[in-house]
Design a binder for these strands. Structure first.
Lengths: 218, 218
DNA sequence: CGGAGCTTTGACCGGCGTCAATGAGAGTGG
DNA sequence: CCACTCTCATTGACGCCGGTCAAAGCTCCG
């Protein structure tokens, strides 16, 4: 399998909704996101894709892209050959089972976001979003305690959380006034993770990626 | 693989959040749903599980149940042995790839619901929900044109769409007043599928479950 | 006949959207 | 070094959609 990379500039469309599928990719640097446009021009961002995330798998079940994938920051991806992936299903069942389990985690994360959009106030939604991002950064071994750069505009936070940019601004100001977060420029610092998690209705999940249910192969 | 079935009465909990995982199942009759409770007592229903749906797969990646699964109607499921599923990954890679593709569809459906909760008005949310259910029933070869029984209370519609039961009532009344649907008892009839789809921001997706990307095995 | 569960309706209110204006940087060219 | 512009953040005024509270109907069932 030859490995090829591609670069995308911030704001670039990687794959457009209803268009051709494009490749399956792994994010090797930067952030991508999947979004959909409504006909009145509003946008909803469904997922953020961080370094290491597998992107574009929905191409395995559709013939047109079900959503738009764009680069949130300058980003680099590594292309994955579809047929090579297919071969993996045959040659490496354990790896395939591992992928399958990862899909479940992805789905649970989506479900959590659904809960947040369906049942939380603006504060709760933004808090949940920040917790989600903070967790992913910690997972990527990026220290958070001293603050971190949020490469996301307030408009994008709105599109992620189902709010307007204006109200995101007011909400983040409220969170800061309450001493939960501190902002300076694009740097954000979480001051009270516990209360923020509570606001977000956040509950710790423990993924277990060891497929004990899979018989030893070979 | 021995096949065992279980019955659940309407309202029964099949598997409780944070509790043990329980089995992987296929719904053979009735409807199930996955939901989460917030600490203020509100509830969000993430998914409906119809006949033929594979349920409980998240057990492959967690050691505690990430959400609650309950019976929406009296229901019957067929239990699937975890290890037998594991063996399938090794013995039947094409079937495994098929499952993988189905997971993608599931995720796209979740993403559509996320869009709806994030960016639609009450009318749009309820319309999207009705479109979703109607489609699943058509997919199961149940005729819809003459109306069909909706085994869902308005409170449950609220928990599905992120609204209160009271507002669901007003919203459905409005949809009926506009001539989009007709209701009598638990029977619902879609009078103007086109306008309803438009309200719901519904767009037809064409799943392609033929894994052409998978090399021929064996 | 009585109760339980669900639906329906009204009155009122608050959170969030909308519209509009201003401020604050960052980059660019003169 | 200074206009100029473009993007993004911020703030205020105001209105509406959907939540809240409360009270009645309706249907089914024992």
């Amino acid at each position: 399998m030859t490995i090829s990379h591609r670069q995308f500039r911030r704001g670039t469309v990687v794959r457009a909704e209803h268009g051709p599928l494009g490749d399956i990719m792994v994010v090797t640097d930067g952030w991508l996101f999947s979004s959909a446009l409504l006909e009145d021009g509003r946008r909803q961002i469904m997922r953020l894709h961080f370094r290491g995330d597998l992107v574009g798998l929905d191409g395995l079940a559709y013939d047109r892209a079900p959503d738009t994938i764009s680069a949130l920051t300058d980003a680099q991806v590594c292309l994955i050959d579809r047929v090579a992936l297919g071969r993996m299903f045959i040659d490496h069942p354990r790896l395939c089972a591992f992928l399958f389990a990862i899909q479940q985690i992805d789905r649970v994360v989506l479900a959590e976001r659904l809960i947040s959009l369906g049942r939380s106030s603006a504060k709760g939604r933004v808090a949940a979003l920040l917790m989600w991002i903070a967790n992913r950064m910690q997972f990527a071994n990026i220290a958070i305690d001293g603050g971190f750069v949020l490469p996301v505009t307030q408009e994008e936070i709105g599109d992620l959380s189902g709010l307007t940019a204006v109200h995101v601004n007011r909400t983040m100001r409220a969170l800061a006034d309450q001493g939960l977060i501190a902002r300076s420029g694009t740097t954000l610092r979480i001051l009270d993770m516990e209360r923020l998690a509570h606001l977000a209705n956040y509950s710790e999940r423990r993924p277990v990626l060891d497929p004990v249910w899979l018989p030893l192969a070979d």
